[in-house]
Design a protein around this nucleic acid. Sequence first.
DNA 1: ATAAAGGTTCCAGTAACTGGAGAGTCAACC
DNA 2: GGTTGACTCTCCAGTTACTGGAACCTTTAT
Lengths: 138, 138
Amino acid sequence: MNIGTAATAAGLPVKTVRYYADIGLISPSGRTDAGYRDYAEDEVSKLIFVRRARSFGFSIDQARELLSLYEDRNRSSADVKAIAARKLEDIDAKMSELRALRDELAHLVDACRGDNRPDCPIISGFANARKDRPSTSG
Amino acid sequence: MNIGTAATAAGLPVKTVRYYADIGLISPSGRTDAGYRDYAEDEVSKLIFVRRARSFGFSIDQARELLSLYEDRNRSSADVKAIAARKLEDIDAKMSELRALRDELAHLVDACRGDNRPDCPIISGFANARKDRPSTSG
DNA sequence: ATAAAGGTTCCAGTAACTGGAGAGTCAACC
DNA sequence: GGTTGACTCTCCAGTTACTGGAACCTTTAT
């Protein structure tokens, strides 16, 4: 399929898909006679996966590492399992951070009456914000 | 408190905190005689909040909008509530995307035996990846 | 007094896109 | 078969959000 179709299917801008091909992250399986990039279903799945990973702050290099699980199907599965497990921890950490962010905002929405009364107690939502480690997962 | 203390408390690099001050996202309440930035607890809370927001792909401008809820305590709370509610939807969407990503990886970890058997069924994890909307929340 | 640690500004570089020019390709319609 | 319009190509410049480093100043500990 053409890049536009693949991009739409993956929920990414065409520009980004082309960029991912340029940097060798996800390359189309082939080209048409006219030189159009030709994407397979498989690659669309990878694009979706990368979009998700990226949208949670995983770097391109981390995404590449995650994708390598997919690519290097010949590496030992113990190896795969170890890498994936490590990433899972990263994701779980992100999960609880996201929940914290959500709670802060939910508190805000909840605490504000929605009428025109000013001085909405947002500050307490912030004040309750716990300090967590940054996601310097490498 | 000094920038280093604030940065550590917020889980951000000093450079980033300085950058946030430069672009007027979160400015320190004052300066010492020597010209050192002086941060209050309040600002550390904001830094934490922004760190979280950023780590989930919210742009600086979106973070600014979220912070404005905090800053503009005099705006009508109906207004505040509307903005926050919209952001909450964004976060909920991110939440389910993150869960999807997690599930894909968990499936992988689970399905791989952890022994040296190659050809770990990662592909199915990817193939199951559902297409979702990108987070073009604006 | 002096060294180490941490602060300042400024400027250049990086990561990951993003927009636009200029040109070729494809599907549809007259 | 010609034309229109949407889509694609490459290349290159610009943007966002940092990030590293130089050159210099301040604070703290010895």
